[in-house]
Design a protein around this nucleic acid. Structure first.
Lengths: 129, 129
DNA sequence: ATGTTATATGCTGCATATTGCATATAATAA
DNA sequence: TTATTATATGCAATATGCAGCATATAACAT
């Protein structure tokens, strides 16, 4: 993905390509469990470097699956709310996806990391949980 | 895809990768409209060379999305029936996918090509409709 | 056996995707 | 201003995916 210099990559095709990566699926699964998450929180939950999280979020954003909101120094990413249809079915698929222990660990770490919020806001950078 | 020398490509990941290609989505959309199709029929509907159709079918088969049945010289490919869940949601997504004129043309040619069957069986090779 | 038809696959080259490192940007605070 | 923290991105190296051509396999017919 990254930069879509592809010919005429239509929307659904771009979305399928955005989903064809384990890290991005892991990110989406986390976002399905929280109203939002900032980059540091995803770093801790997935144990991946900052540039990796940022890059994958950028791809998901270009595909229209997530959006962002800046709050001071932090950026919160969240799943774009869609009317029932194409994207909703995909999210349903991911929700009912085959369970992996990797993803279970992700959710555990994510929950712990979200526990560090104060008043629902992210207040610390990556802790390397 | 092709040869899965990937690390540990789990099932859902392999499926998402299988869907990250326009030709394979086109094939699935056709199969959603017919109980089966042989390679020649897909060649005519999608106007693609035989090796391309065979390759993509092979990838879909490894992902567990389609299966095949040989009848004499022909091989019939069909969507694997799944219990409601992951794959079913994906098929729903593809069904409700954004319409493209390309896909409309596919369906027209596919219908014409299926019209050449005799007793529900494929009896001619690629006609280049 | 040979020939014909339908389908599969090995190989190469090209296009694209992902990673890792380093650096850049943006917002805040002193 | 500078410093600090959070996030983004340019670049090069590597990995992966796909198209095209040629060839192989499989089933059937003669």
């Amino acid at each position: 993905m990254q930069h879509i210099t592809y010919e005429t990559l239509n929307k659904s095709e771009e979305i399928f390509r955005a989903l064809a990566d384990r890290t991005r699926i892991r990110i989406i699964r986390l976002l399905l469990h929280s109203s939002d998450a900032c980059v540091s929180e995803l770093m801790d939950a997935l144990r991946l470097p900052q540039y990796s999280i940022s890059r994958h979020l950028s791809i998901l954003r270009h595909a229209g699956l997530v959006d962002e909101r800046r709050e001071g120094i932090w950026k919160y990413y969240y799943l774009v709310a869609k009317p029932p249809g194409f994207t909703e079915h995909l999210m349903e698929a991911i929700r009912s996806g085959i369970n992996e222990k990797l993803l279970e660990t992700d959710l555990d770490l994510f929950a712990r990391r979200l526990g560090l919020r104060v008043d629902g806001k992210c207040v610390v950078g990556s802790e390397g949980l």
